[in-house]
């Protein structure tokens, strides 16, 4: 049987419908604080992340750049949420890769956007104009601006990841470059007590989805409606 052009196109369209558009994933992270607090002084996640992404170590805390860091519980979740059992305890913070990211909404150039395939909030430092509107909009302080050239503050440069220039904003990317080759985010991989679990929350069989079904979880500032995809377990 000869396949006509019309039949071929119809077949192609059917195939595209069937296989072309995979169900969008929703990447999320669950952080078990009880595990994390086994060593409150541990900073392995930040070290691994900042080394992998050429994040500079800037001595002036007012101008620092950080993708993942620790903050006191009451600063992360508000004074009202911090009972005496948790007050002062360190909580790892990073970009929440929100469902409705306020930073994406305000960006005037589309330099930051939400990736449809997996929900990652991405950042294109080559398009960013440095207006810092995203920093004003982010309710979580997850974004850093390069107030000066970051390269002099890098002790070692990992050639596998780009460095940035002064005048642009950057942040955690959920390690999109590692996810692309099937690896876990650097912080998840390195965490000694395996306190961080990362995966597709839209897939019921994923570890993170199972964990969120089994355990009580909470998020930072849920009332703002941004819908953070970083969950904390306690």
């Amino acid at each position: 049987m000869k396949i006509t052009r019309k039949a071929f196109l119809a077949l192609l369209a059917a195939a595209t419908r069937a296989f072309g558009r995979p169900r969008p994933r929703r990447m999320a992270m669950a952080i078990d604080l009880a595990k994390c607090w086994k060593d409150r002084g541990c900073t392995r996640c930040a070290q691994a992340c900042h080394a992998a992404h050429n994040v500079p170590r800037i001595p002036d805390p007012r101008r620092e750049i950080k993708w993942i860091w620790k903050e006191r519980f009451e600063n992360a979740f508000g004074e009202e949420s911090a009972g005496p059992a948790v007050a002062g305890a360190p909580v790892p913070l990073l970009c929440n890769h929100c469902e409705h990211p306020p930073c994406v909404k305000v960006c005037p150039t589309g330099a930051t956007w939400k990736r449809e395939s997996d929900g990652l909030v991405m950042m294109d430092e080559h398009r960013c104009i440095g207006c810092r509107y995203c920093m004003a909009a982010c309710p979580y302080g997850s974004r850093s601006f390069n107030w000066s050239d970051p390269r002099p503050f890098l002790r070692a440069i990992d050639p596998a990841y780009p460095t940035r220039a002064r005048g642009v904003v950057e942040k955690c990317t959920f390690c999109s470059e590692r996810l692309a080759r099937g690896a876990q985010p650097a912080c998840v991989e390195v965490c000694p007590p395996k306190a961080m679990v990362f995966g597709d929350a839209a897939d019921p069989s994923s570890a993170v989805a199972q964990l969120l079904r089994a355990r009580y979880s909470f998020r930072r500032k849920p009332g703002l409606g941004a819908g953070p995809n970083v969950f904390y377990l306690l």
Binding site: T109, R127, I129
Partner: peptide
């Protein structure tokens, strides 16, 4: 003068983003 990259000012026109009030 507030922009980190004033040389990219035209990106606001090249990538118009109606969801941003700045647009």
């Amino acid at each position: 003068v507030d922009m980190g990259r004033p040389d990219r000012l035209l990106n606001v026109l090249l990538y118009p983003s109606p969801s941003s009030l700045m647009f």
